[in-house]
């Protein structure tokens, strides 16, 4: 088997998105070298980022340069197809985001690659790639083998612990011009607005997420306080985002963000199946709900039947006390 291309998702300041480190960790255990793909979208990898990629074991950083917008999925797919051909790599690993899954669909058609999305493991077994994933709101686990020579696989954040390569390397950085055909140019990116980074960790990759639902009645202060003590991110149910209590990007669930943090805490969240679809694969699930019959207790490792307005501040105060 040949090399793996890892899509190096990054922020506008050029810092790597956290789950990319997991992708590299996974790719290192597959046969072949790990090559990074950097979409040159204005943000450049700093020397520190290149050095970090070297510590993780990335041998090459391929800068994709196009005379069109590589944020359009079809364009990104065209770039990845070019790189697959130029490097002889057989696998693209990308973080499971809607944008990357879109690109995967285009790439599959352009290159004949198999697509597996939202996986939590990828191994080389019996001479083929095998990916693990949970389905049906985290109630089933499956393993899926790739039957084609090329594959594109998207990996959920928080799937594996990040480790460094046994020996650091110095990545070679090189440019690759992507020729976008007229077809790709038919999608016009009229506007793209990135939200400013928050002080809290990224929802998708945070190790701890505290989620507020309708039970907060719009007051997220105790949710935020607990999240901050735990160094976690703040999420919400669709009810809370629909009510405008918090931005839509905080919505956890089947039609929002899928998360699998080490610790999920739901406060005033009933645990509707649409919500569970986006969080049931979390490591430890804690629920605070005043209704003992709330469905979330069926999946909670630690449940508190109580009022979030007293339980959350008390927990936060106690954690601060214990931390000293």
């Amino acid at each position: 088997m040949s090399d793996t291309l890892v899509l190096l998702d990054h922020a506008t300041d050029g810092s790597l998105r956290a789950p990319v480190r997991e992708l590299v960790t996974i790719a290192r255990d597959l046969p072949g070298a790990v090559r990074g793909v950097w979409v040159a979208d204005g943000a450049e990898p700093s020397p520190a980022t290149i050095a970090e990629l070297g510590v993780l074991g990335v041998t090459h950083v391929h800068r994709l340069v196009a005379d069109g917008d590589l944020h359009v999925a079809a364009a990104l797919a065209a770039g990845l197809a070019t790189l697959l051909a130029e490097t002889g790599a057989h696998l693209v690993l990308a973080v499971s985001t809607f944008e990357n899954k879109e690109a995967a669909g285009h790439l599959a058609v352009a290159s004949g690659a198999a697509v597996v999305t939202d996986v939590d493991s990828v191994v080389w077994s019996d001479e083929r790639l095998v990916a693990g994933k949970t389905v049906f709101a985290g109630t089933w686990t499956t393993s899926t083998a790739v039957r084609t020579p090329l594959a594109v696989i998207t990996v959920k954040p928080n799937s594996v612990p990040v480790t460094d390569a046994p020996e650091p390397v110095t990545p070679q950085v090189g440019d690759h011009a992507v020729a976008l055909d007229a077809g790709v140019g038919r999608v016009r990116l009229v506007e793209r607005t990135e939200q400013p980074a928050s002080d809290r960790p990224d929802l998708t990759s945070a190790h701890v997420v505290v989620v507020g639902g309708r039970g907060t009645e719009g007051d997220f202060s105790s949710v935020e306080e607990l999240a901050d003590v735990l160094g976690g991110a703040v999420g919400a149910t669709r009810v809370a985002t629909d009510e405008g209590w918090i931005g839509h990007e905080a919505q956890i669930g089947q039609t929002g963000v899928t998360i699998s943090p080490r610790l999920y805490i739901g406060a005033g969240v009933s645990g509707a199946v649409h919500h569970r679809g986006g969080m049931q694969a979390s490591g430890t699930i804690v629920a605070v709900n005043s209704d003992p019959d709330a469905p979330i207790f069926e999946i909670a490792d630690f449940g508190v039947v109580g009022d979030l307005r007293t339980v959350l501040p008390q927990a936060a105060a106690e954690l601060r006390r214990l931390k000293g």
Partner: peptide, 10 residues
């Protein structure tokens, strides 16, 4: 999208 709002046209 996550952290990004886009307007696309075709």
């Amino acid at each position: 999208l996550d952290r990004v709002t886009e307007v696309l046209e075709a």
